[in-house]
Design a binder for these strands. Sequence first.
DNA 1: CTGAAAGCGCTAACAC
DNA 2: GTGTTAGCGCTTTCAG
Lengths: 335, 335
Amino acid sequence: MESKHSPKRATIGDVASRAGVSIKTVSRVVNGVMTVNPDLAARVRAAAAELSYRANPAAFALRTGASFRTIGLLIKDLSNDFYATIASAVADVARAHGAQLITAHAGENTADELAVVRDLVSRRLDGLLIVPTSGDHAALAREIDPHIPVVYLDRRPEGINADSVVIDNANGARDAVTTLINDGHVRIAGLFDTLNMPTMRERLAGFREAFAQAGVDHDGRLIVTNLSTPDSAFSATSSMLALESPPTAYFCGNNRSGIGALRALWVHERIDPLVTFDDFELSDLMPRRFSIVKYDKHSIGRLGAELLFRRISGDQHEPQSIVLPTQIEKRGVAK
Amino acid sequence: MESKHSPKRATIGDVASRAGVSIKTVSRVVNGVMTVNPDLAARVRAAAAELSYRANPAAFALRTGASFRTIGLLIKDLSNDFYATIASAVADVARAHGAQLITAHAGENTADELAVVRDLVSRRLDGLLIVPTSGDHAALAREIDPHIPVVYLDRRPEGINADSVVIDNANGARDAVTTLINDGHVRIAGLFDTLNMPTMRERLAGFREAFAQAGVDHDGRLIVTNLSTPDSAFSATSSMLALESPPTAYFCGNNRSGIGALRALWVHERIDPLVTFDDFELSDLMPRRFSIVKYDKHSIGRLGAELLFRRISGDQHEPQSIVLPTQIEKRGVAK
DNA sequence: CTGAAAGCGCTAACAC
DNA sequence: GTGTTAGCGCTTTCAG
C-alpha cells in the first residue's frame, strides 16, 4: 500500500540546494527554531513552497525519538452510539493534547481483537484506550508493549493491574430495582442482554441484590437474558404479559431491551412502571412515562483519555479505577 | 521475566547481540522473509521475546518508503450519528485494506479546520476523507499535499476537481414535496436548518422546484430557516399552527426539525401529513404516521473510502462524483 | 550565524 | 545462508 501519486516528494536537501543554502539552515527555518538570517529564511521558505516541501515524519521521529502524537482507541463498533460518544470525547481530549486518535474496530471474535491490538501496538502509539470485547484481558495485556500506557474502559480489567474507567452498574441496577420494590412491586421482570458481557452480569447482580437487601423473594422465571434487540425484548415482554400473573413492573438491562419492552407495554396499553438502564435519543418523546438509569457516557471517554495522557507524560502512580455514578431520571411524556 | 519498566526500547542490534547473530539475520527473522537456519531463527525469536522487541515503525518507513497504512477522516463531530455512521463505514473499509483510521474533529471555525488538515497532512497519511465544514474548499485543497489523495464527502467540492460522494438532496426534497402537492396540498410548511449548509440549500432548492414543476405558487411565509434543534422546530411549527390559515402539510429539511415538528403536531393533536429528510433511531416508534426521505449514510463512508483506496493504489482516472439516491419511506405507528 | 559530518533503527545490495 | 556496508531524511554535535 504505497501511495504513488505524482513525481517524487521533495526532501530537505532539495530545498537546500534550490535555496542555495545548507541542509541545516533549511531545518532551522522549517522548525522555526534558532535565529536565521531573514534573507536566507525567505529564500528557504520560497524554495520550500515551490517544491511544496513537507517534512518526513518518519525521519523526524527516527532522529528525535519523538512520537507520532497518536493514541489508539479499541472499541467494538463506531456505529454504536455508546462507543461513538466515547470516541468523540477521547478525540477531543487527544486534540487538546496535540494528538490525534486512531479508532479501531475490535471485530467479532477474540482473534480479530488480538490482531487489531497487535497492529496498534506495532505502530508505537503513545497510548491505548481499550474497551475489551473478549473476556481474556490477560491475553490482551500480553500483546501490549510495556512501554505503551493502557487504560481500560467500561470493563474492569481482570487479572491485570491497570487504569480503568467503569460504570457503577451493580449499584445503579440495585437502586433502580429498589425504587420499584419500595413502591410495593414484587413480580418485577428483569430483561437483560447476554450475560457474556460483564456489565450485564453486574446489572443482573444489582437486580438480585435489591431483593436480597429488601428481604423479598423474587420469581426467577421473570428474568430473561440474551435480549440483544428491541424486537426480542418486545417478544419477551409480550410473552410475560400473557402469563397468568404477569409482572407488575419492569427492569431492563440496557436501552435496547428497554425500548422493546416500552413498545410492548404501549401496544398492549399497559402502564406498569418500567426502569431501564441507559438513556437514548428521543427518550423524552416516548409516549409514556418511565425511568432510566443514566450515567455520563462522555465522561468514560474523557476521564479515560485524561488518565491516559497523565501516564503518557510520565505519571507512575498505582493504577486507579474510576467508577462513574449513575442517576435515576424520569423520561417520556404522559399522553 | 522482562522488567515492566525497561528504560529503553530494544533495537534490532540488541536482539542480534543477545542472540549472537548479525543484525541482518534478526531482520530476516522478524520480517519472515527469506529462509533462515531454524536454529538461529529460534534463538532470535527467543531473544526478541526476552527483550520484548518491537520493530521501530519510523525506521522501517524511512528505509523502505512504506507508508504508515493510515488514512484520515475529517468530520465535524463523532458524537453526531450521521458522522459516526460514516466513520464506522470508513473504519471497516480501512481495516479491510490493512489500514487504520484517524478520525479528526474539524472544530468550530474555519481556522481550526485548516489547522487540523495541516496536522493530518503533516503525518503523510495515505489518504484523506473530508466532510468540509467551512465553505472555502479551495483553501482546504491548498493545504493538502498533492501526493495525498482526497475524497470529499456529503458536500460537493467547489472550485476544485476532486472525488466526492454526495446525497441527491435536491431531487430527494423535490420528490417528497411533489407527493404532498399531488395530494392536493398547497400551503406546505418548509422547515430548514441554516442555509449556510450547502446540503440545506440544495434541499430548499428542491422544495421550491417541486412547486415550480407543478406550476403552483407557494406562500414564502411558510418557509422557516435556521432551525437547528427540535425545540426551535417545535416552536416554529406551533406558531404556524396558530396562523389564520395554517399549513396543511409539512416538509422538514432534516431530522432535527422533523422531530420538533412531529412533536408539535402531536401535542396539538394534528394529523397533517409530514415528510422529513433523514431517518432517525426509533422513528418507527413515533406515535403518528409520517414519511421520511431516506438515504444510505453508511454508503457515504463506504463508497468514499473505496474511492480513496482506489486512488491510493494508483488509479489516475478523472475525479468522479458519486450521487447517492434517496427513497421515500413510511415511518411511525398509527395510534 | 552557518556548514559538515555523524548517526537514529532499519533494510537492500552485495559480499562471503 | 549469513554478515557487512551504505544510506533512507532528518536533527544534532561541533567547527568555522
